[in-house]
């Protein structure tokens, strides 16, 4: 067999094998690759399982003036509405999915940091910084705002009353 063919077969087999190992929840491969950027390229294939997403996440923010909070406002652009045309053309799916990914990662990291007794470190995580930066940009549209705070709220058609899943610190605008 040609050397190129042998090499290609070996590489493809190894990659497929790694994909299979990543599927096992307690596999050493998942533990090894789970936290590094290379591991993100390995597919998991566990769509909506074992725990399916059954809530919507919304990012909301509010201004703080003289120790008093203002009303919560939703960042609608982060969770665009679904439309019938989405079956064919759905550019807003990226924002919607990104909001879910960021919210879930922040919630998971907060839980881990809380368990480690270091909940303050949440502000150093990438999802927190992403949301803080985004909120800062929103707040900058209102020059009078000096401080802001953001939150992630969860709801669904089954449970329409929004409940806070994460509330940030108050930051200077």
């Amino acid at each position: 067999m040609d050397l190129l063919a042998v090499t290609a077969t070996t590489v493809l087999t190894a990659l497929t094998f790694v994909t299979v190992l990543m599927a096992w929840p307690r596999s050493p491969v998942r533990h090894l690759l789970g936290g590094v950027i290379v591991g993100r390229f390995v597919p998991r294939w566990t769509f909506f399982a074992p725990v399916p997403g059954t809530t919507d996440f919304h990012v909301v923010w509010r201004a703080w003036e003289k120790d008093s909070p203002g009303p919560w406002r939703e960042m609608i652009a982060m969770t665009p509405q679904r439309r019938p045309i989405d079956v064919l053309w759905n550019p807003s799916k990226f924002s919607r999915k990104a909001t879910i990914d960021i919210a879930l990662e922040l919630l998971q990291e907060s839980i881990i940091l809380n368990d480690q007794g270091d909940s303050n470190a949440a502000i150093l995580t990438v999802p927190y910084i992403l949301l803080a930066q985004r909120t800062s940009r929103e707040a900058s549209l209102y020059p009078m705002i000096e401080h802001f705070q953001f939150a992630i709220v969860a709801d669904s058609l089954a449970e329409p009353s929004a409940r806070p899943a994460f509330v940030s610190r108050v930051h200077a605008a």
Binding site: F48, T54, S156, L157, A158
Partner: peptide, 11 residues
């Protein structure tokens, strides 16, 4: 599961 997924606005 499917009932829960269909109850979201995202999916």
């Amino acid at each position: 599961a499917i009932r829960g997924i269909l109850s979201t606005r995202s999916y």
